[in-house]
Computed example of a mutant assay.
Amino acid sequence: MTRRIAAHQLFWPALALIALLAANAVLSPGFLSVRVQNGHLYGSLIDILRNGAPTLLVALGMTLVIASRGIDLSVGAVVAIAGAVVCAHIAGSPQPDSVATVLTAMALAVLAAAVLGLWNATLVAVLGIQPIIATLVLMTAGRGIALFVTEGQIVTVTSAPFKMLGAGYFLGLPVAILVSLSIFVLIGLLTRRTALGMLLEAVGINPEAGRLAGVRSRTIVFAVYLFCALCAGIAGLMIASNISAADANNAGLWIEMDAILAVVIGGTSLLGGRYSLTGTLLGALIIQALTTTVYTLGIRPEVTLVFKSVVVVAVCLMQSAKFRGSFTRGRRRPPSGSPTAPTRARRTEPKVLA
Score class of each variant (00 low, 15 high):
11 F>Q: 03
21 L>C: 09
26 V>Q: 10
32 L>Y: 05
32 L>F: 02
36 V>M: 12
36 V>D: 08
37 Q>V: 04
47 D>C: 03
49 L>A: 15
49 L>R: 10
50 R>M: 08
60 L>Y: 03
63 T>C: 08
63 T>D: 06
64 L>W: 03
65 V>W: 11
70 G>W: 01
70 G>E: 00
74 S>I: 00
74 S>G: 07
84 A>M: 04
88 A>R: 06
89 H>A: 10
97 D>N: 15
99 V>Q: 03
99 V>D: 01
108 L>K: 04
112 A>F: 02
114 A>C: 08
119 W>V: 14
119 W>K: 07
123 L>N: 12
125 A>G: 08
139 M>F: 03
139 M>D: 00
141 A>V: 15
143 R>M: 00
149 V>I: 15
158 T>I: 11
159 S>L: 08
161 P>M: 03
175 V>I: 14
184 F>C: 00
186 L>D: 13
187 I>V: 12
191 T>N: 07
198 M>W: 06
204 G>W: 01
206 N>Q: 07
206 N>F: 08
210 G>I: 02
210 G>F: 05
213 A>S: 15
215 V>M: 06
216 R>N: 15
217 S>P: 02
225 Y>S: 00
226 L>T: 11
231 C>W: 08
235 A>S: 13
235 A>Y: 10
237 L>N: 03
238 M>E: 10
247 D>L: 10
250 N>M: 11
251 A>M: 12
264 V>K: 07
265 I>C: 08
265 I>D: 06
269 S>V: 09
271 L>T: 09
277 L>M: 08
281 L>V: 07
301 P>K: 01
305 L>W: 00
308 K>Y: 05
309 S>R: 07
310 V>E: 02
317 L>M: 14
319 Q>P: 01
325 G>D: 15
334 P>F: 03
339 P>W: 00
341 A>W: 06
345 A>H: 10
347 R>N: 02
